[in-house]
Design a binder for these strands. Structure first.
Lengths: 345, 345
DNA sequence: CTGAAAGCGCTTACAG
DNA sequence: CTGAAAGCGCTTACAG
């Protein structure tokens, strides 16, 4: 790379100190600097195509106007959409964003966070992995501003922006019941993630409140790393038990993708054989012959709020902000079997 | 943020110069430094939890181990998938990545590139916008290493990794013909992007070679910014003309998404009423009742190769590498009407 | 074997 | 109104 023009280049050219150049280019002490010199400096800066070296500036000011974003996997549409929203909101405020994917791996999350901090990010937005608390304690200890995205730990006080996941599970289940569902199974990840457990808790709570039998017996947990086979197995087990489930609540878009593949392969009829409701969405859902009913997360609000809280924290507002966003039920065909023909049951 | 431990902290603690600390922590001049001192330094570094300040190091060495990635829109699955692959490949080599979305806007692309360069990226991977050449000339002039991704300008010599788009258009069209297509329309973006024009050229060339009539009369161009309405209009016009098209070649996944929505809305039967082939893919295609035949881009290879070329360039290999990747035809149900019942025509 | 010194490109308190 | 100087946290050629 060629040497870029520096303050010094401008200073020598104009015959003035770098200090003065710095002041005028930053529009500081304007009242104390002669208009002629200022104009001259600006002209030369433009002529030499000067752009400030953020890295040198950052070293001096400990501010890089860069934030770090760590998601589970940037190639997942959920993460990618959030990334875009965060990018835009950051950009509005002059920030650029470093990104990384944790793959739900604690070690990797930690490594990414450190790499970003070493590169001087002003703060971090992150979707924490299951055992991220140790890292979060370290961030707190070293006073790195951060806000959790999509997930948080109830026992750990920090800023976060997440869906009200209990509500999401509850709403989805209540809708299933209102549509005539009698036996509502759920497939969730085998995980200690609070946000996932909350979805299960919401489901269970709605079942109980509406006195729907079954409960935890209709819950199946799958492992992230064997997703395809385990989703197949669990869908199958819920449908082939003595009293098969008539509705499937799927706790994430990835689970839904695999479930749909299996349902297509087995030529099951949705919603006739099985009704489906998903928490979270992805583009694919609308193209299935029975478009999927799902719980929409307000991504725009989630990404923007997280970014704003972080930027606020960076500018010395140390308040802890905890935001739980409301889920939205989007009703499509996949859940409407019972509702449209309640007499058949 | 708290002050992190610096080389100086370690130096004073051990009672040695920062230079020495720097040497041992970078494993330099190992033969010239006593093992005891080295061990002592390493121990203290560990104890104080030292991590090098990349920004200070970068200022001195002009190397930040950060690269910039500019795509069209990170929330598009094509960009997001590439981003993930590039992230992984960069990570393998100790690099972190800054990202940005150009929205196909020349001004924004330029702004993003400058912001990244100001932050000291070692190089850039970018999907250039239509009129990016001026920026590229500047990058060349200032010797910022870069490689173009997905697109390039035939009249501008630079490293790039892209699909062989002529071949993609040709393959798709030939498959349509072999499947019995007699009137094959194409919808592409109204754009001067070489990679898009090549897709059209491939389509046209296949039509000519197989003596299929129609040609450019069956080509429709849509604008990015009115995508939904223009796709609807053009699909409609191709199907309602005197001699309607029997096959639709769609030049991108975004065009396909809108076309599918319209086709579903109008209850057109695929492939009976209209066969469909798409260049590029997205998860949604497989869930349509007639899964879409598409041209797969080798994303893994594209992202990895681009990253490797860039890192190579960064480490002073100035060679220009131009890589055209082979498309792969993935045949599904949406294009098989003609083939499965050739006698009906 | 080890250290003093200069310098990367900025900012900013201080002195004039 | 303007400049000299120190310093952010590193690296590295040079001297001892």
């Amino acid at each position: 790379m060629k040497k870029r023009t520096s303050l010094k280049d401008i200073a020598t050219r104009v015959g003035v100190s770098t200090a003065l150049v710095s002041y005028v280019l930053n529009n500081q002490k304007e009242d104390r600097i002669s208009k002629e010199v200022a104009a001259r400096i600006k002209a030369v800066a433009k002529e030499l195509n000067y752009r400030t070296n953020q890295i040198a500036k950052g070293l001096k000011t400990s501010k890089t106007f860069t934030i770090g974003l760590i998601v589970a996997d940037i190639s997942n549409s959920f993460s990618a959409s959030l990334a875009r929203i965060i990018e835009d909101e950051a950009d509005k405020n002059g920030y650029t964003v470093l990104f990384g994917s944790s793959d739900e791996n604690d070690i990797k999350l930690r490594k990414l966070a450190h790499e970003m901090i070493n590169r001087g990010v002003d703060g971090l937005i992150l979707a924490p992995t299951e055992n991220a608390i140790e890292l979060l304690l370290e961030l707190k200890e070293t006073e790195v501003p951060f806000v959790l995205l999509d997930r948080y730990f109830p026992q750990f006080r920090s800023s976060y922006v997440a869906l009200d996941n209990f509500q999401a599970g509850y709403m989805a289940t209540e809708h299933a019941i209102e549509s005539g569902g009698k036996r509502i199974g759920m497939i969730n990840f085998r995980s200690t993630h609070f946000h996932l457990e909350e979805r299960t808790r919401g489901w269970l709570s709605a079942l109980r409140e509406h006195k729907i039998p079954g409960g935890k017996k209709q819950l199946r947990l799958v492992r992230e790393h064997h997703l395809e086979s385990e989703v197949q197995k669990t869908v199958n087990s819920l449908l082939s038990q003595q009293e098969p489930v008539d509705t499937l609540l799927l706790a994430s878009n990835m689970i839904a993708i695999h479930a749909l593949r299996y349902i297509i392969e087995k030529r099951l009829k949705v919603p006739k054989d099985i009704a489906i409701i998903v928490i979270d969405e992805t583009e694919a859902f609308e193209f299935f012959y029975a478009p999927l009913t799902f719980i929409r997360q307000p991504l725009q609000e989630m990404g923007q709020t997280a970014t704003r809280i972080l930027l606020d924290n960076i500018s010395h507002n140390k308040a802890v902000s905890q935001v739980n966003l409301s889920p939205e039920l989007v009703v499509k065909k996949s859940s409407l079997h019972h509702y449209s023909s309640p007499l058949k049951r």
